[in-house]
Design a protein around this nucleic acid. Structure first.
Lengths: 334, 334
DNA sequence: CTGAAAGCGCTAACAG
DNA sequence: CTGTTAGCGCTTTCAG
């Protein structure tokens, strides 16, 4: 073919210098006489030389790529984080190898291993839970890792997220304040710390402050799909439950649409607050009142934190909590 | 640190064989006596040896990673394609380096270059248009590339997509058949072939078959955002236009919600058909009638095609067209 | 400021 | 069936 791949050696010969010098100018090392630098650069342009990142990686033991483990890119919540991650990654000249895990333990182990094999300089993990095996791998490896959009309940890994307890408490309190006596708690698996520990704790706290007592019948554990929400709506109808806190937007959209399709008036007969402030929350009618999260920023800050870790900089606080909000839209009364 | 990185050499020494043999067992080469293989494998386990993909890449000149250029992961349409790509990529043991381009010419050039520098074995490009510079780079490089979810109007690059002309024609014909005399054509930039050439051609064809004449005032060129749709809805209200074909789901959702919020009854007073069958089309109420596309498959097939290209297999037809459908939901009358 | 030389960890002929 | 020997293309001491 036309292009026989030109190497650093070709440039060196053509410019009448050593490989070392070419390497220096390519890497912006200041110890090169301007004239020499000029000459080398000219040759580089002329030959259209492009450094081979793989060779560079082998020699320097740095791949300038980081691994991102994501449950599913198709999920708007994670996609938003991913976008934040990617933007600051490229800002710092890192590339991203992205792997969908489907939150499947086995897949997660697999992708972690291939990521490590590829010599990524760092890893960002998204997902609602970490199994022990995975956590062990994390602590074993010297590859820095940070959790984005979730917290390890053992806090053994740096992470960035919002305060799930407080935000949930606030949301539920709002529902109660609007006159709802029975507020359902709808989320994904309670075995996931974010639900079973944090959000549930916030829910209970809100109940407690209102003087209500906890009723297990109000807890609905399901999966994160839109369909699950639709189904749930049927169960909800005809009960004395008049409001619900929902841990996921697609799920909430399902509940909302399911309710509406059955003739239940939202928010008059049933109020709803969702958690992730993803785009779907605003696409549905009525628009879902939601806890707001700086999704993009969670990703961006995670990546920034990772760069520090990779540089072995001192980290003041490895567990970063970003501010959240509560946006009253149309599925609550005020 | 605990782990001094064990290399193939360590394994060889410990197992009393040569590096070559270790390499063979690691790569599943059959020319190894079972007993030897066993011994080597034992040592590998014992030492917890993991092949270094970077070194492997340098030696073999294959990185087993492919580059994916995506306008924005946050966009459900592209994210779905990406998911399909990733799934078959891992099926074939490839990893994915994903780069957001924002459909920005300059960024596209940049990411293409870094992808090439990383020695990716192939590239999948998503986006609605290709500028000449980029096309030139593509043809120059020996790295195989395929377009997913778009067609190069010059058909100089392998691609997989649906038939945009026919699907649009069908959608617009439906709108006309339902009694709409004035059907708007709403899309992103007409400078993008997918809009200005294919979809518009389908639109004109439908008009022609109905005996209507083309009216430029019915063409609305905008950007792909939800907000643009909302804005457009105001412009549409009060005109004699009673239906619209929309080239993007978020945009369509904006138009729909904008219309509804202003009291326009959809579909009675205004009918709408969108194009991408993304999740948002079904989340909104009324649900958007849409051209259906095998999104996941477009991604999957693209990746499959790429594997063939990378293997230098013979390709019968480099421009693959997948079947589409038309799902009548609630924004059209029947 | 520049060059020589030793690898990085692995694959791939080539022998045997 | 197994070992030897070159590199792959680049970074990085170490001299000078």
């Amino acid at each position: 073919m036309e292009k026989q791949t030109v190497t650093i050696y070709d440039v060196a010969r053509e410019a009448g210098v050593s490989m070392a010098t070419v390497s220096r100018v390519v890497n912006g090392n200041q110890n090169v006489k301007p004239a020499t630098r000029q000459r080398v650069n000219d040759v580089i342009d002329k030959l259209d030389y492009r450094p081979n990142a793989v060779a560079r990686g082998l020699a320097s033991k740095k791949s300038t790529t980081i691994g991102v483990i994501i449950p599913d890119v198709t999920n708007g919540y994670f996609a938003s984080l991913a976008r934040g991650i990617d933007d600051v990654a490229s800002m710092y000249k890192y590339n991203i190898i992205m792997e969908n895990s489907d939150e499947n333990d086995q897949k997660e182990m697999m992708v972690l291993n291939t990521l490590l094999a590829k010599q990524v300089d760092g890893i960002i993990f998204m997902g609602n839970r970490v199994n022990d095996k995975l956590r062990e791998e994390f602590s074993h490896s010297r590859t820095p890792i940070v959790f984005a959009g979730s917290v390890d309940d053992q806090e053994s890994v740096p992470s960035v997220s919002i305060d799930y307890v407080k935000s949930t408490e606030e949301a539920v309190s709002k529902l109660i304040a609007e006159g709802n006596k029975k507020v359902a708690f709808i989320s994904g698996s309670l075995s996931e710390p974010i639900n079973g520990q944090y959000r549930l704790a916030g829910y209970k706290e809100a109940l407690k402050k209102a003087g209500y007592k906890f009723d297990e019948k109000l807890i609905f554990e399901t999966d994160y799909s839109y369909e699950a929400g639709i189904k749930l709506a049927s169960q909800l109808k005809g009960t004395d439950i008049s409001a619900a806190f929902v841990g996921d937007d697609r799920l909430a959209a399902g509940v909302l649409n399911g309710l509406t399709d059955q003739g239940v008036k939202v928010p008059d007969e049933f109020a709803l607050i969702t958690s992730n402030d993803t785009q779907v929350a605003q696409l549905v009618r009525p628009q879902l009142t939601s806890i707001t999260q700086p999704l993009y920023d969670i990703g961006a800050v995670s990546m920034r934190l990772l760069t520090k870790l990779m540089n072995k900089e001192e980290i003041e606080e490895p567990t970063i909590t970003l501010p959240y909000g509560l946006d009253s839209r149309q599925t609550t009364k005020k």
